[in-house]
Amino acid sequence: MEIPYTVTARPDTGLWNAKIGIWLFLASEIMLFGGLFSAYVFLRIGADAANPWPHGLLNVPVGTFNTFVLISSSMTMVMAWASLKMRKFAQYRIYMGLTILCALAFLCVKAYEYNDKFHHYGVWLKNGEFITGHLEENTPESLTILPDIHHEGRHFWPETEHGAPREIKKADIRRWSNFTPKFSPFFAIYFTLTGLHGLHVFGGMVVNIYFWLPGSKLYRTNPEHLANRVEVSGLFWHFVDLVWIFLFPVLYLL
């Protein structure tokens, strides 16, 4: 038994099955990220005095670099598909390889960013003061923090200057945490959104690796079918890029 329209289009709809399938899936993905984005809006509008919405906590140059990486991967992805359509297999291999490389680079940069955040601390004192910086020492009675020095206005390059070490008594502390999801609503939504996005990058990368190596055998028997499959994974890949296009300004810049 054969399922019809897996490679060729059904005449009246003009579409093959997987094309419809992937677009439906992307529609649900729009609602998934839509749910998270609406949570972002909700949290941001509702930010109160105890948790004002922060600005400039993320590393803009690194984020910009990662945006470039993802945009490039989108370009190489579409070129990989076009190469298959033009039946240039060697070229397909190169472009697909580049796409995978970009995905890997993106994930590595993201891991670096996460790690950097985990090593940053914030302390709320009972007298209302709020200090951020690196943790020098943590004893049962006190914390020693290398406080960040903030300059007025917004900066492209992150500020890395530290003041003199400052010892804070635990008794004076209302709450302290490193920059993990529990730190604040901003970091909660930041890690959730980018984490979910990162999972998508990872998943897309795995599928692309499959089409790059073992899956590409199909080229010999049915190149059009392979092109269709790569188009499907490409659609997913571009969508992941598209989500990042919104994530980047929303989280890093605004």
Binding site: M75, V78, G234, H238, F239, L242, F248, P249
Partner: peptide
Amino acid sequence: VALAIATVKATLVAAIFM
């Protein structure tokens, strides 16, 4: 401004790449 630019970029990706 940022969202407008992002929308233009997203439209380009959707219209051409996809």
